[in-house]
């Protein structure tokens, strides 16, 4: 099947091999269902998101609730029709996808989407019957520990158990592209470990994995490449380690000395204050963030030493995705 006008756009970059998923400048408007809401006009859920996801990589869409992650996935999965923009999944337009394309894509929806009255294994066998060469259901069930609770209908499973069944249902067709919408939602620590290990193995086998999450920890642990989205737009993207080291050596120093009401000017000389932020978390307890290095620490410790102060707590942390995410949210809400 050819999709001429969409394909042409991609062929402007003949050197780059086409990725498993390519989204360019995606927009999606929803017309609100109720008449009262309809008068306000359509709601724009996605406002120009672009991304590419490669085989053998985990690509994470990271953002707060309502940032447009799930809608972006729904357009990539062919569940929603884009209002404008380009979406190509395995080189095809997912909205027009037939069974051939759907057979190569595995999807775990945010709410699971599982029938409630049936037990997990019969459900997985049923889903497997939709594929010519499905995964070995017994092996999958054993691997995800589903056999431990197969005597129970899906309705009575815990959130984590249900999530494991939904992951199995997404994997049973041995997909080339795997979509996971909030994969760790509701997972207890044990389920989380089981699920994350499996995701990493699926990636190692060359599958393209695209996941959404609002948890920084998920993205840091799983993702090769992260797109941070906010208000339906891309705000930042990069490899996890690049994002973390971006903005020089950004770090956070937390300390408690019991001296209340200090300002940055009290602590550091003028030449060392650039790009730093000081926040008094509680009286006498501070958080200093920015490109900190040994000269800053040197000044602080000499100051304390001169005054005979020993901080009751002192903690230096590298910047994590959460800090980055909060910085971006603050920046865009201003």
């Amino acid at each position: 099947m050819t999709v001429p006008q969409l394909g042409d756009e991609y062929e402007n970059e003949p050197d780059a091999p086409e990725p498993a998923l390519l989204i360019r400048d995606l927009r999606k408007d929803f017309t609100a269902g109720r008449r009262r809401d309809r008068r306000r006009g359509p709601v724009r859920a996605v406002d120009g998101i672009s991304l590419r996801a490669e085989f053998g990589h985990v690509t994470a869409l990271l953002g707060a609730n309502g940032a447009g992650k799930t809608t972006t996935l729904a357009c990539a999965q062919g569940l929603e029709r884009p209002s404008s923009g380009l979406v190509r999944l395995l080189g095809r337009d997912p909205w027009r996808a037939g069974p051939d394309l759907r057979a190569r894509v595995g999807i775990m929806l945010q709410d699971g989407g599982l029938p409630q009255a049936i037990r997990p294994v019969p459900l997985l066998r049923h889903v497997a019957s939709m594929y010519r060469r499905p995964a070995d259901v017994d092996a999958l069930v054993q691997r995800l520990g589903i056999d431990d609770f197969d005597r129970t209908s899906i309705r009575r499973l815990s959130g984590g158990q249900r999530q494991r069944v939904a992951l199995a249902a997404a994997l049973v067709g041995r997909p080339r592209v795997l979509f996971l919408d909030e994969p760790s939602a509701g997972l207890d620590p044990h389920s989380r470990r089981v699920v994350f290990e499996l995701i990493q193995e699926v990636r190692a086998a060359g599958t393209c994995i695209v996941l959404t999450t609002h948890l920084m920890d998920d993205a840091e642990r799983l993702a090769d490449y992260v797109y941070i989205v906010e208000g339906g737009r891309n705000v930042l993207e990069g490899r996890v380690e690049e994002l973390l080291t971006a903005g020089q050596r950004a770090r956070t120093l937390r300390f408690t000395t019991g001296e209340p009401g200090l300002a940055l000017t009290d602590l550091l000389p003028e030449g060392l204050r650039a790009s730093l932020q000081l926040r008094e978390r509680q009286s006498g307890s501070y958080e200093l963030t920015g490109p900190l290095d040994i000269s800053h620490l040197d000044h602080l410790t000499s100051r304390w030493s001169r005054r005979g102060i020993t901080p009751s707590s002192l903690e230096l942390q590298p910047r994590n995705l959460e800090d980055l995410f909060l910085e971006i949210s603050e920046r865009s809400s201003r």
Binding site: R104, A135, D136, A139, L140, Q142, R143, L171, R174, P175, R176, L198, E201, V202, A205, G206, T207
Partner: peptide, 8 residues
Amino acid sequence: AIAPLLAD
């Protein structure tokens, strides 16, 4: 154990 599960 996972090998037969994955896409080839």
